[in-house]
Deep mutational scan, measured.
Amino acid sequence: ETGKELVLALYDYQEKSPREVTMKKGDILTLLNSTNKDWWKVEVNDRQGFVPAAYVKKL
């Protein structure tokens, strides 16, 4: 879809709370919100949640 910003997972991340999502290094995720410098909201496999901003980079 146009207008979607994507990020690349630089590291594996295992969710530690229900508000977070698990990702694997190399995953491409849809970026939903990056206003917080530490935690970015992403969508992966129809799930939305937060990942550490340092673990992903914008494509």
Score class of each variant (00 low, 15 high):
Glu1Leu: 11
Glu1Tyr: 05
Glu1Asn: 15
Glu1Ser: 15
Thr2Gly: 14
Thr2Glu: 13
Thr2Met: 13
Thr2Leu: 14
Thr2Ile: 14
Thr2Pro: 12
Gly3His: 14
Gly3Ser: 14
Gly3Tyr: 13
Gly3Leu: 13
Lys4Thr: 11
Lys4Leu: 14
Lys4Gln: 11
Glu5Asn: 12
Glu5Val: 13
Glu5Ser: 12
Glu5His: 12
Glu5Leu: 11
Leu6Ala: 07
Leu6Glu: 06
Leu6Gln: 12
Leu6Trp: 14
Leu6Arg: 10
Val7Glu: 01
Val7Met: 05
Val7Cys: 12
Leu8Ser: 05
Leu8Met: 13
Leu8Tyr: 11
Ala9Pro: 01
Ala9Leu: 02
Leu10Thr: 05
Leu10Gln: 04
Leu10Phe: 04
Leu10Pro: 00
Tyr11Gln: 13
Tyr11Ala: 11
Tyr11Phe: 13
Tyr11Thr: 08
Tyr11Cys: 14
Tyr11Leu: 09
Asp12Thr: 05
Asp12Tyr: 04
Asp12Phe: 04
Asp12Pro: 05
Asp12Cys: 06
Tyr13Met: 01
Tyr13Thr: 00
Tyr13His: 04
Tyr13Gln: 00
Gln14Gly: 07
Gln14Ser: 12
Gln14Trp: 11
Gln14His: 14
Gln14Thr: 14
Gln14Cys: 10
Gln14Met: 15
Glu15His: 09
Glu15Tyr: 05
Glu15Ser: 15
Lys16Asp: 06
Lys16Phe: 05
Lys16Met: 12
Lys16Cys: 10
Ser17Arg: 08
Ser17Asp: 12
Ser17Ala: 08
Ser17Thr: 12
Ser17Met: 08
Ser17Ile: 04
Pro18Trp: 10
Pro18Asn: 10
Pro18Ile: 10
Pro18Asp: 12
Arg19Leu: 15
Arg19Ile: 13
Arg19Ala: 12
Glu20Cys: 07
Glu20Pro: 05
Glu20Asn: 05
Val21His: 04
Val21Glu: 00
Val21Ile: 15
Val21Cys: 09
Thr22Arg: 05
Thr22Met: 04
Thr22Asp: 04
Met23Val: 09
Met23Gly: 00
Lys24Leu: 08
Lys24Trp: 10
Lys24Asp: 04
Lys25Gln: 10
Lys25Arg: 11
Lys25Tyr: 05
Lys25Thr: 07
Lys25Leu: 05
Lys25Ile: 06
Lys25Ala: 14
Lys25Gly: 06
Gly26Leu: 03
Gly26Lys: 02
Gly26Trp: 07
Asp27Tyr: 05
Asp27His: 05
Asp27Gln: 14
Asp27Pro: 00
Asp27Gly: 04
Asp27Leu: 05
Asp27Ile: 04
Asp27Phe: 05
Asp27Ser: 07
Asp27Arg: 02
Ile28Phe: 06
Ile28Asp: 00
Ile28Val: 10
Ile28Lys: 06
Ile28Cys: 06
Ile28Arg: 05
Ile28Gly: 01
Leu29Tyr: 11
Leu29Val: 06
Thr30Ala: 10
Thr30Phe: 13
Thr30Asn: 09
Leu31Ser: 01
Leu31Ile: 05
Leu31Lys: 00
Leu31Val: 07
Leu32Val: 13
Leu32Pro: 00
Leu32Gln: 03
Leu32Asn: 02
Leu32Lys: 05
Leu32Trp: 05
Leu32Phe: 04
Asn33Arg: 06
Ser34Thr: 10
Ser34Met: 08
Ser34Cys: 10
Ser34Trp: 08
Ser34Gln: 10
Ser34Tyr: 07
Ser34Asn: 08
Thr35Met: 11
Thr35Val: 10
Asn36Cys: 09
Asn36Tyr: 08
Lys37Gln: 12
Lys37Pro: 13
Lys37Ser: 13
Lys37Met: 09
Asp38Asn: 12
Asp38Ala: 11
Asp38Thr: 14
Trp39Gln: 02
Trp39Met: 06
Trp39Tyr: 07
Trp40Met: 03
Trp40Tyr: 08
Trp40Arg: 01
Trp40Gln: 01
Lys41His: 12
Lys41Thr: 08
Lys41Gly: 05
Lys41Glu: 14
Val42Phe: 01
Glu43Asn: 06
Glu43Ile: 09
Glu43Met: 11
Glu43Lys: 10
Val44Ser: 13
Val44Tyr: 15
Val44Phe: 15
Asn45Tyr: 12
Asn45Ser: 10
Asn45His: 13
Asn45Gln: 12
Asp46Phe: 12
Asp46Thr: 11
Asp46Tyr: 08
Asp46Asn: 13
Asp46Ser: 11
Arg47Phe: 06
Arg47Tyr: 05
Arg47Val: 08
Arg47Asn: 06
Arg47Ser: 06
Gln48Gly: 06
Gln48Ala: 12
Gln48Ile: 15
Gln48Asn: 08
Gln48Arg: 14
Gln48Tyr: 07
Gly49Leu: 05
Gly49Ile: 04
Val51Ala: 03
Val51Lys: 00
Pro52Gln: 02
Ala53Glu: 03
Ala53Asn: 03
Ala53Phe: 03
Ala54Met: 14
Ala54Ile: 10
Ala54Asp: 09
Tyr55His: 07
Val56Arg: 00
Val56Trp: 01
Val56Tyr: 01
Val56Met: 05
Val56Ser: 01
Val56Leu: 15
Val56Pro: 00
Lys57Gln: 14
Lys57Met: 15
Lys58Ala: 08
Lys58Arg: 12
Leu59Asp: 04
Leu59Gly: 04
Leu59Ala: 05
